[in-house]
């Protein structure tokens, strides 16, 4: 395992790892399903990461392999966004699956997030 890539950890079908290969960018690989049951673990994980990150970095959630997000998961995204704004960290959603994006659209949240 490279120094700039952490081991993958699992929370009930949700898999997370952190990649810091790119300078001034923290990429969190989010895989699997973000459901009601594991959203709280995801939020705790991200909150800890944001609190330990320096102001001004880019935080990228790479979601090419995230296939399901519940409304609690959307709630977790919004809390993460608020926390990043407080620390002047820019949050990006990368490679979001159309199915997951459609949920965000359906609930009227796409305008708040930046997609790459």
């Amino acid at each position: 395992m490279a120094d700039n890539l952490t081991e993958e950890i699992e929370f009930d079908g949700l898999f997370l790892s952190i990649d810091t290969t790119l300078p001034n960018k923290i990429t969190v690989n989010v895989k699997g399903r973000l459901e009601t049951a594991n959203s709280i673990h995801f939020l705790n994980f991200m909150t800890e990461l944001i609190n330990s990150s320096v102001t001004g970095v880019d935080l990228i959630l790479a979601m090419a392999d995230l296939y399901y997000v519940s409304s609690t998961g959307i709630g977790a995204f919004t809390t993460i966004l608020v926390n990043t704004k407080k620390k002047n960290i820019q949050l990006y959603f990368k490679d979001m699956q159309p199915k997951v994006l459609s949920v965000l659209e359906l609930l009227g949240f796409t305008a708040f997030f930046k997609f790459i």
Binding site: S71, K85, L107, G108
Partner: peptide, 15 residues
């Protein structure tokens, strides 16, 4: 819940 979340985001943006 989502309305509260929207409000929270808007407040953070305003701040």
């Amino acid at each position: 819940n989502l309305s509260t979340a929207r409000l929270n985001i808007e407040m953070a943006e305003t701040n």
